[in-house]
């Protein structure tokens, strides 16, 4: 098992209560590996305590990257959330805590 933080980087974005997490391998050859191992279901399970809605995975082959768009993931939404990190900006590193085969 290996932590995603060893093989990929990520940036978090937000719109309302939608959280987006990119997943970008340091080495482009690892894109196929991530494609196989990091499914939307696994991301939803990994962050199930935060994400109340569905997770959709988008493939961006031009840059060898994945995008996970997570619905109902930021409480009532960025502008009215009580969370310390209302935007979820730190959550890129929560995704990178996931371990894969």
């Amino acid at each position: 098992m290996i932590k995603l933080s060893k093989i990929a980087h990520s940036r978090a974005g937000d719109k309302g209560n939608i959280l987006m997490l990119s997943l970008i391998p340091f080495e482009e050859k690892d894109y196929e590996w991530l494609l196989r191992e990091v499914t939307a279901e696994k991301v939803k399970a990994h962050l199930s305590h935060l994400i109340k809605g569905e997770v959709i995975r988008y493939e961006i082959p031009g840059i060898h990257a994945l995008q996970f768009t997570c619905y109902q993931a930021l409480g009532p939404g960025v502008t009215t959330s009580l969370a310390l990190d209302a935007h979820g900006k730190s959550l890129s590193y929560a995704l990178l805590e996931m371990e894969i085969e």
Partner: peptide
């Protein structure tokens, strides 16, 4: 770099298509 640009390309994008 390619890395900095990849992160920014996907920033706050709900559906990259």
């Amino acid at each position: 770099s390619v890395q900095t640009a990849k992160e920014q390309l996907l920033y706050e994008v709900i559906d990259p298509s």
